[in-house]
């Protein structure tokens, strides 16, 4: 299954909450994130309603929501910084869904929000996640020791970030515009 089969769109709180809840309750998804299983859809509904700063995206294959990501611009003196996290349904991992979500986040950051810095935390043992982020230009900035609790142990997480130059001084060539 290639990336072209994955559709990324905004989360629709009226229809996507059940799928989002199901995915984030999966033990292996909670394992790779900071979620705790047995969360109710109502928790997520209220959270989506209350949080007006985080943009939630979902990944869809054949009409089924199989992954999600939350993206936020930090604001004030970090107005140039974005942070995000993502989760992919266990049965659909390893098929490019994470790549598609990350590509959408990078697109938002680079092409629309003009962010200079994208940052995230990823568990130190999450080799697949770390490899994905490296592929998109993220670099390790350090290790947070005993960052979070996970299945009976306190585990380390890596701080990773991707920087980008300020395009203010770049001369925009009208002839190269491809948008219609």
């Amino acid at each position: 299954m290639s990336n072209s089969d994955v559709i990324i769109r905004a989360l629709d709180p009226t229809t996507d909450v059940e799928a989002w809840t199901r995915i984030h309750n999966q033990r292996q998804v909670a394992f790779g994130t900071l979620r705790i299983p047995f969360e109710s859809p109502d928790f997520w509904s209220r959270r989506f309603e209350a949080d007006t700063t985080t943009r939630a995206l979902v990944a869809e294959i054949d009409g089924r929501v199989v992954g999600g990501a939350g993206f936020e611009v930090r604001g004030r003196r970090a107005h140039h910084v974005g942070a995000f996290g993502m989760g992919v349904e266990v049965e659909y991992q390893g098929r490019g869904v994470g790549s598609a979500l990350l590509a959408a986040i990078v697109d938002l950051a680079d092409n629309w929000y003009n962010l200079r810095r994208l940052e995230l935390e990823v568990f130190a043992e999450n080799a697949a996640g770390i490899a994905l982020y490296r592929k998109f230009g993220f670099e390790v900035e350090g290790v947070y020791r005993k960052y979070a609790y996970r299945e009976g142990a306190f585990v380390d997480a890596l701080a990773m970030a991707r920087l980008r130059d300020d395009p203010w001084h770049t001369q925009h060539d009208e002839k190269d515009s491809t948008h219609e």
Partner: peptide, 14 residues
Amino acid sequence: EATHRQYAQRAGRY
């Protein structure tokens, strides 16, 4: 533990 590059804006620079 970590160095976060261009983390914040301070007096006109990152």
